[in-house]
Design a protein around this nucleic acid. Sequence first.
DNA 1: CCCGGCGCTGACAACGTTGTCCAGGGGCTA
DNA 2: TAGCCCCTGGACAACGTTGTCAGCGCCGGG
Lengths: 355, 355
Amino acid sequence: MTDTAPGTASRTPTRRYGTRPTMKDVAARAGVGLKTVSRVVNGEPGVTPDTERRVQEAITALGFRRNDSARILRKGRTASIGLVLEDLADPFYGPLSRAVEEVARAHGALLINGSSAEDPEREQELVLALCARRVDGLVIIPAGHDHRYLAPEMAAGIATVFVDRPAGRIDADAVLADSFGGSHDAVAHLIAHGHRRIGFLGDLPGIHTAAERLRGYHAAMSEAGLPIHDAWVSLGPTDPERVRAAATAMLDATEPVTALFAGNNRVTVTVVRVLAERPAPATPVALIGFDDFELADLLSPGITVIAQDSAQLGRTAADLLFRRLDGAGGDPRRLVLPTRLIPRGSGELPPPAAS
Amino acid sequence: MTDTAPGTASRTPTRRYGTRPTMKDVAARAGVGLKTVSRVVNGEPGVTPDTERRVQEAITALGFRRNDSARILRKGRTASIGLVLEDLADPFYGPLSRAVEEVARAHGALLINGSSAEDPEREQELVLALCARRVDGLVIIPAGHDHRYLAPEMAAGIATVFVDRPAGRIDADAVLADSFGGSHDAVAHLIAHGHRRIGFLGDLPGIHTAAERLRGYHAAMSEAGLPIHDAWVSLGPTDPERVRAAATAMLDATEPVTALFAGNNRVTVTVVRVLAERPAPATPVALIGFDDFELADLLSPGITVIAQDSAQLGRTAADLLFRRLDGAGGDPRRLVLPTRLIPRGSGELPPPAAS
DNA sequence: CCCGGCGCTGACAACGTTGTCCAGGGGCTA
DNA sequence: TAGCCCCTGGACAACGTTGTCAGCGCCGGG
């Protein structure tokens, strides 16, 4: 009883710090029943204008705000969806996240999100925390490869859509970009411009998109009857140091690559830096990057990219999610969105004449 | 009873879709009391290893997951904070958002976020929705100028920290970048390099940072005893079309500006595009942008910027928020983080000789 | 004039969890 | 061996809201 508020600023708070008025308080003040307050708050019909006014006044006077926790507990629906991605700060995920949010907003839902930092354990921890909150649905960009832990949750009714990468070891909706096709196009484009020794700098091979892009690289090379030298392929973490070392090694080999294909936007940017720092060779190295990025057109040369629309990816996934929430049944679907090659110069550079 | 756990793809789920087992179910199955289950779930002491094992088995068998809505209702704390920003897709807010999330995570809290799209009404709507969820705290990048609607919420104990822009018409914690100082530095830098006619392309004048940056521009100009022509200042929405038109007008005037100061990263990028598209003039136009951005160093010339560390902004705000949540009292504080001028070439270009 | 019905209101239970409190049993001490 | 305390477990209320249902006037029609 004597837990007086630590009163941040106010000296004599009327009610205990952290205690808020409830519908009961409002009802008492307005001289009406509890349920009538509920009706007013929810805009339900069947309340006299006069009564409603009295209730509204009490609400304003007390600063009442409905406690959604209680509402959620009672109704069973949280009107919120969870988004688990790799890194909010990555420019690829910003638009995706925003698109998901827009769709959620259109459906009156809030977005709870978290970054897995590409750590499967952290992903699971986050996802299960969201499930404990009883989010209505989940949009997941998975970091791990085993999502069996989600099966009971999905069975219990939490709709789930995977984005950018498919789920591992369970059957679930997924919305993906055509990594294989895009990668194939990129490499074929370089080959068409005369390149024979093409380096591929990719992400960790465990990541689905990285594996698919590598597959596309292989396919395009072998379709053209070109050999693939081990030294031309480097998969691993995409921190600048590693990428820098890998790119430099490929470029400084006795038989250097004449073109590079970068597996994602972070890699591309690092490669651009590496190329810019090297003393200008007689014949510049060709480059294509997976993922478009801002200003790619303003560099010289402009950077040719395989563009995927991350906002569209997010929108599609969220749409699918809400369709599921609205009761759409059927088997899990896998949607693959096309990629687009945008030539800007760097991908059209020819190899050295004496290649 | 016969509620066997539904297999992932099981044809005949025994329990109704959307109905989940509760602690009561677990207790019944384990043959213990309700509270004992609660104790196990929360890792509270006072449970025999044997009993605990039985409970754990029941939990696994039923696929039980604690309902946090009920927990929250009971405990009063949600272990979640709200983040309201302008646009998740804006590269400036990605790192900020991520930093807030990291801090929240360190404190065991989830992050609920939404974009206001620079619309005060939408901001209020979002903030109040978060308050209804009883988030423990709020980090807000305000779009509006009147936050009195927040007073009752803050009085009720929802800690609130404003970032990037201060609160309007209420007293609240704020973490800001030094827009005035940064802007002043930028313009002084241009003046030091000989410029006299400097254009300022800013955001809507109602936005605090835009106003501060304009103030910095004015201060630096008048300190140098330079006049300011109305046509040199353009404030408004930062969509490419408007910025493009404004920049073009300044550059094509009879007495054209010789240098431009761009009020934020979106503006800067558009200006870079405009300058790149114009036929190369004898003397290139100098440019400094507020906000650093990726690849600014790789353009030619490199773009000189006033850098503010958006991640640091977010981290500082979140730290302050959790200090408040941990009971730190005292008057609302206003923290101003310094900006840093990064010369890269575009800001050091001299004006035409005959200026 | 009476009765049926309708429009408005409120009492009450339930959602799933946690805190409080009490009971029973076993071990230790006197 | 008796008494006491601690350790374990369970019954119950409460958190704030919403759905159900019943009651009470009042009006119109028969």
